[in-house]
Design a protein around this nucleic acid. Structure first.
Length: 550
RNA sequence: GCGCCCGUAGCUCAGUAGGACAGAGCAACGGACUUCUAAUCCGUGGGCCGGAGGUUCGAAUCCUCCCGGGCGCGCCA
């Protein structure tokens, strides 16, 4: 908000320089938050950039820029510093207004003008061949939180789960279940070579004993279909339940099979055929993805006439576009990184800009038990479900833990540590700050101070450094949200909340809120209420609760 | 061999779009509860930002090469 304003007035001043003959083409106005307090609340290296382009002394440019700023009195001072930075120090009046904004008009405070009609975030789309593993939770919380953020900004965003219910792995799932079914009856049967060996299929097999009579009447083909459908539905049910308990509500569960059924794959082939991007080789049908920067051409229809997963995926993305999404975000495991290029290539081939699709690659999670790595494998059945960990550790710590780290870097999830040190999880640090705010407000009410009374407070009494620190952080909340929209790096939000919590705890320690000085009490209560609102708002985006007591 | 990601304090990681003296948590050590919740606060120590070159007024950040770790290189999904 404030940063956007600074950007705007700098942009205007820059334009002024351009009109006076300087070359300002292609210079982007960047406003950053300095590491050192002495360098102001906001800062820009703009003069350096202009100077470089025009071979002029940066300080000279800086003076010209500053003299042309229409500042609207929101700054206490504007300094030119160092080799050519302009540093902005916001006025107390502005900071005080932040409180009013937060308490009275939060939606407007965080709002960012909408540039998209409909956004879709697709995440968590694991193969429905087993329960959700704890490591899967990473992509889930990232996608879920991003979608929450877009909605918070007042944008239209949907959450979607893509069900891979067509393909070999589902056949294999059915066969694995059938094997277990025979096995528990003591019937000798060879387990499918690459089959799924997890315990969960045994449980299902026992369930099916109740339907033995019905099953016995089926012929081979019917049986195969029955076991497949049964396993798939049960797995899906399990995944849905797990995600729901984890606090994730999808708008759409999209079936891959439906694409096949509705001829969407053929449609893709027709379009690509028409545009001349497919050809036949070795009795397979290929897509010339190399024309769009991919390393190799890719097969769309196999020699045996069946479609590849990739063709279905293209049809899926075309369908997304046809459903009106103009910003599509896929959250994928990093092991699929090689597919990014071909996916974007396919969009281009269909005549769309590859920029409507953003793919977030989430690096692998390594599971540890103490120092030992636990190999994740659905096939061998050795894994720890999200549900299981959630039961022991709780939803909030898991979500926060996974959201805290950049999706670019791998991370270790130590199950022992997570269980043992659930109490040490930084999420509690943030929640505790919130609970403290609530506690103060509660006690204020007991002393007959109502929330309406806060409106009449004299906020100029907030002069302490600790108070100012807090106000500045509050002011930056919308900036942070904007950064996340730009970079899709949701981990910035938990880090911000930690900073805010730190500033609050520090304030709490040195500035007593409820005192005999009623005027000061009222002013500080305003601040406390604002902190409470922002922490709660941020945690809500992350899908984490904001307890009022701890 | 080729491609993608990573390498920052003892450990786990931040480091904003190339900006000003490299940060936090944990661990270690030393302080602070008669007080609105000590799940907290204050302080101390700890770093050739994997290595070498290069671009730049300026590099942890960009480029090249090398070393180390992970992941991919299917007419599987």
């Amino acid at each position: 908000m404030v940063r956007e304003k600074i950007k705007k007035i700098l942009g205007e001043a820059l334009k002024g320089l351009g009109e006076r003959g300087l070359n300002v083409n292609g210079i982007e106005v960047i406003v950053e938050i300095p590491k050192q307090k002495e360098f102001g609340d906001y800062s820009t290296p703009l003069p350096l950039l202009v100077a470089q382009k025009n071979k002029k002394p940066p300080l000279e440019i800086a003076y010209e820029l500053v003299n042309n700023l229409k500042t609207e009195n929101i700054f206490e001072k504007i300094e030119i510093a160092g080799p050519g930075f302009i540093n902005f120090f916001v006025s107390n009046q502005l900071l005080i207004n932040i409180i009013k904004y937060i308490r009275k008009d939060l939606d407007n405070f965080v709002k960012i003008p909408n540039t998209y009609k409909k956004i879709q975030v697709e995440f968590g789309s694991i193969n429905p061949t087993g329960p959700m593993h704890i490591a899967h939770a990473r992509g889930v919380v990232i996608g879920d939180s991003l979608a929450n953020l877009f909605r918070r900004l007042g944008w239209n965003a949907e959450k979607e789960f893509y069900i891979n219910d067509a393909g070999n792995q589902i056949d294999l799932l059915g066969e694995s279940l059938y094997s277990r079914y025979l096995e528990i009856q003591g019937i000798n049967h060879e387990f499918p070579k690459e089959g799924y060996r997890g315990e969960y299929l045994k449980d299902l097999a026992y369930e099916l004993l109740n339907e033995k009579e019905k099953i016995d009447t089926m012929d081979g083909k019917e049986k195969k279909e029955f076991f497949k459908e049964y396993a798939l539905n049960k797995m899906l049910e399990n995944i849905k339940k797990t995600l729901q308990n984890f606090g994730v509500e999808y708008d759409c569960w999209f079936s891959e099979k439906s694409l096949h059924r509705e001829g969407k794959l053929n449609k893709v082939l027709e379009i690509l055929q028409e545009k001349g991007y497919i050809y036949k080789k070795d009795s397979a049908i290929w897509f010339s993805s190399t024309k769009f920067g991919d390393e190799d051409d890719r097969v769309l229809v196999k020699r045996d006439g069946s479609p590849t997963y990739f063709l279905a995926d293209i049809a899926y993305h075309l369908d997304k576009i046809e459903r009106g999404f103009d910003w599509i975000i896929d959250v994928w495991g990093a092991d699929h990184h090689a597919h990014v290029k071909r996916m974007k290539a396919s969009l281009q081939a269909l005549g769309f800009s590859p920029d409507i699709l953003d793919i977030i690659l989430v690096q692998m999670v390594r599971l540890l038990r103490g120092k030992e790595e636990v190999k994740i494998s659905k096939r061998t059945g050795d894994f720890i479900t999200l549900e299981e960990v959630q039961e022991e550790v709780g939803k909030d710590p898991i979500r926060f833990f996974f959201l805290l780290r950049s999706s670019d870097s791998q991370l270790d999830f130590d199950i022992d540590l997570a269980k043992k040190q659930a109490v040490d999880n930084p999420v509690y640090y943030v929640q505790y700050a919130h609970a403290r705010c609530c506690s103060i407000l509660r006690q204020a009410q007991e002393k007959n101070i109502n929330l309406e009374d806060l409106d009449s407070a004299d906020l100029t009494l907030l002069k302490d450094n600790k108070e100012k620190e807090l106000l500045i952080l509050l002011m930056r909340y919308p900036d942070k949200l904007r950064d996340i929209v730009r970079t899709l790096e949701i981990h910035l939000l938990p880090h911000y909340l930690l900073d805010l919590a730190t500033a609050f705890h520090t304030f709490y320690d040195s500035c007593r809120v409820l005192t005999e000085d009623r005027k000061l009490t009222l002013a500080r209560l305003n601040l406390v209420d604002s902190v409470r609102i922002i922490i709660s708002d941020g945690l809500k985006i992350l899908g984490i609760s904001s307890p009022e007591r701890m």
